[in-house]
Simulated scan of single mutants.
Amino acid sequence: MFAEVLFLLYVGHLLADYPLQTDHQATHKADPGRRGWTANGTHAAVHVAVCALLLTVGWLVLGWRLPVLPTLAVLVWIGTTHAAIDRQRLVAAWMRWARQPEFAAHGGAAHVDQTAHILALTIAALFLAA
């Protein structure tokens, strides 16, 4: 079940991060102040909604029996971690700590960002499959 959950959460992530993310969200989700937090929060909410929908599909189509509270905890985890990662401070701090200024200067932050999101989804899938 782990692989199936992870796959659907990853598909949800891709849908929410690319075709369902508005230009406004993409441009402003890391900005300071209310505008940044609003763009970030609405973007994270889309992630939660899409992942909830796909977990429901898993329940209906694949016959998963996901316990309610752990599933809600996973959805909170997905929203919270996605919002925190997209604020970009953790990614920038990681790249400074890992001594990756050249990688950062040439678009590496986007790769570190996506890797962090996949790690968070993997932890979510492990939690649900346990």
Rank of each mutant, 00 (worst) to 15 (best):
F2S: 02
A3V: 12
L6D: 00
L6E: 00
L6C: 03
G12Q: 08
L14D: 11
L14A: 15
L14N: 12
A16D: 11
D17H: 09
P19E: 07
L20D: 10
L20Y: 12
Q21F: 08
K29I: 08
G33M: 03
T38E: 14
T38M: 13
H43G: 09
V46T: 15
H47M: 07
C51L: 05
C51I: 06
L53C: 14
L55R: 00
V57P: 06
G58R: 01
W59A: 14
L60Q: 11
V61H: 07
V61T: 11
R65W: 02
V68R: 09
L69H: 08
P70W: 03
T71I: 02
L72S: 02
L72K: 00
A73C: 10
V76I: 15
G79Q: 06
T80V: 15
T81L: 01
T81V: 06
H82P: 00
H82I: 02
H82D: 04
H82V: 02
A83C: 09
A83T: 09
Q88E: 15
Q88A: 12
R89L: 11
L90N: 08
W94M: 13
W94C: 10
E102N: 12
F103Y: 13
G107D: 09
G108T: 10
A109V: 04
H111K: 12
Q114K: 07
T115N: 03
A116N: 03
A116L: 15
I118C: 04
I118A: 11
L119D: 03
L121D: 06
I123G: 08
A125G: 00
F127N: 03
A130F: 10
